[in-house]
Design a protein around this nucleic acid. Structure first.
Lengths: 206, 206
DNA sequence: CACCTCTTTCTACAGCTGTAGAAGCGCGAT
DNA sequence: ATCGCGCTTCTACAGCTGTAGAAAGAGGTG
């Protein structure tokens, strides 16, 4: 049986993805999760606590994905996240990252939307940023990657790379890219993303 | 005397920047703008109308900046936006774009935050995206630029470029970059951004 | 069984929000 | 001045939201 905490926070994520932070209310979470009214309010007395739980859940899910990365392929979870990269060639690597981005646009759409909403929220509530962990994992990965590729300043370049990838994701998720780019989940989407990521990798590893 | 519409929508932008979409209420706008309670509600009867006005104002401000671009330098407005680029050398161009990004982080911080909030909102309210105009101006500019630089597919590359630049901006505005990057408004910030943008330009124009 | 503790569910309530309409006011036309 | 009309300001009100505490139940212990 799944714990109530995850039921509540997962419902919260879906809600934020669908209606934005404004839709996140105790009662709405109850309804969405099919729980008796008042449950969410009992678990998270204040709204602040509810948001923090939401953010914590996002961080936990990311961590879980990251750990699942080390499982053999046939045990890997349905949810695709940063698979361990084998940067044999830059092109294959780019394709891998593009696949991850595309997954965030499809399977992980709700989580992506909720994450951006929370990042924006973190502007006025800095403690959220601490919980979210600054996307430390991907940042570290990118830094290591670019260091291996011989970048001059891998730390800064890694941060730039992550920011740009996030930009590509956000653009297709919510921005104009949702119109001009090929629809996510398709092969075209992935080749288009691959091209962008490949260019990024080339640029940042120089 | 400034029209009431701009007073209201400007207050709305500031509010959204400070408190997020959730802080945008008729009464809060009244208070923030120093108008008698009920004014905003009279001008924009529904909340949807208020948001649309907000987004329209963002679009108008952008358009105004764009037009001001053609003024002689001494008449240029205090607010810095996309100045007309003279892509003599890629490095100077990168520095110019970096300066614009930095301006969006400082002078234009509120507008930037409000814009991202609205983009997220546009996920569940597509009509907002139409008003916002898909960032068409910068997109066109980037496409033209990359076409001139001899990019293979300037349209797609231009979109990628804009998305990445937006990612760099968002990252420093709300994401982790707010911690790892040099503080905006400083020379370090601009050199760091210049390096990122230069790499992007090189990559995308290839 | 009675008892106690912890969890779950329900209820209350003050304050806020969206929206509508009434009241008031300035002002030009008559 | 008187009327009519558009803009502005005020008030009403139903519904929602955040939060707290009471009531009900579940489960273990003596």
């Amino acid at each position: 049986m799944v714990s109530r905490y995850t039921v509540i926070t997962d419902a919260a994520i879906a809600l934020v993805a669908e209606q934005g932070m404004r839709g996140l209310t105790h009662r709405a979470v109850d309804a969405r999760a099919g729980l008796p009214t008042g449950t969410t309010s009992a678990y998270y007395r204040t709204r602040k606590a509810l948001i923090e739980a939401l953010v914590q859940r996002l961080a936990d899910l990311d961590r879980a994905d990251l750990e699942a990365r080390d499982l053999p392929a046939d045990q890997a979870p349905a949810y695709p996240h940063d698979r361990r990269f084998t940067p044999a060639d830059l092109d294959g690597l780019a394709a891998g990252i593009a696949a991850v981005i595309d997954a965030w646009l499809t399977t992980g759409r709700d989580r992506s939307l909720a994450r951006y909403a929370c990042l924006l929220e973190a502007t006025h509530h800095p403690e959220l940023r601490d919980i979210l962990g600054h996307g430390a994992a991907s940042r570290a990965q990118a830094r290591a990657l670019l260091a291996a590729a011989g970048a001059r300043d891998p730390d800064r370049a890694g941060d730039h790379f992550v920011a740009c990838v996030d930009g590509l994701l956000f653009d297709r998720l919510a921005g104009a890219g949702a119109l001009t780019a090929p629809p996510p989940g398709t092969a075209e989407s992935r080749t288009d993303l691959t091209r962008a990521v490949r260019a990024l990798l080339r640029a940042m590893s120089g």
